[in-house]
Nucleic acid binder design. Structure first.
Lengths: 136, 136
DNA sequence: GTCCGTGCAAAGGATTTGCATAATC
DNA sequence: GATTATGCAAATCCTTTGCACGGAC
């Protein structure tokens, strides 16, 4: 259950937190902005403030439950952290975000870190372009 | 001269534009925020407003003279566009930004585009970590 | 009952915009 | 001289915070 995820993260189990976690899990489009989450809540008749959405998402991020991305947009987007790192394909037409991983690239990244004496903690790789659907 | 760069871009040659272009060219650290540019101008005794800095940088971006990046910071940074694409190594300690390119990665990116039927227009690859200097 | 979480409204930082003035061509 | 830029202040957008109330444990 979601309860345990929250408890494990040291967060009290509250309605807003459960709802928001649920929304992130159910989302077709895995990458949601705070606004998006707020809108879904509003449409579901939940009376949860935007400030709370931001607060909860930030807490989730600190707890490692979600990842926050700054794509080339004006606002941040959040996605559940399932553990495996992945990179992103962002469609500049429709805003759709797909995920991918590539072992060759991952390996080269480590090598680049070694060559440049850089202690890598993280990386973000985003490919921007036009997705199959939008090319028609 | 810088004049021609501006004219080529269809921009009138004005003092603020020249100064800002100059600052971007002279900068040790190639990646500057609007605030950084503004500070340099102020220190040089130039009386140029922050709004103008933003306006000029945005115009430069539209003209293809500079590239705007949104790293994991709260503000954008700008660098001169010298034509060759490169990726970034961002030190999370001191904020230093280095550049690199890797042909293996570039090649794989194209292949990922093909495999996913994605018409790639651009990409951004940022490695976050601790630079050699900060590891001591 | 204590403490943490929430809602609301106000604050905050980065960036943009409206308007009168000043500069370029 | 006409048009485009600039400076300033106000406006805007996304996000965070302060504070009093309500809910979790």
């Amino acid at each position: 259950m979601k309860d345990s995820n929250l408890k494990k993260a040291g967060l009290k189990v509250t309605l807003p937190r459960l709802k928001i976690l649920q929304i992130l899990e159910d989302a077709k489009e895995h990458h949601l902005s705070a606004e998006d989450v707020y809108r879904v809540l509003a449409n579901a008749g939940e009376d949860i403030g935007l400030a709370t959405v931001y607060r909860v998402l930030t807490q989730f991020q600190e707890a490692g439950l979600v990842i926050r991305h700054n794509f080339e947009e004006e606002h941040a987007v959040f996605e559940l952290d399932h553990g495996e790192h992945h990179d992103h394909l962002v469609c500049v037409k429709c805003g759709r975000v797909d995920e991918f991983t590539d072992n060759v690239i991952e390996k080269r990244l480590h090598e680049v870190g070694k060559e440049t004496q850089f202690m890598i903690t993280d990386h973000s790789l985003n490919i921007y372009g036009i997705c199959g659907g939008c090319q028609k």
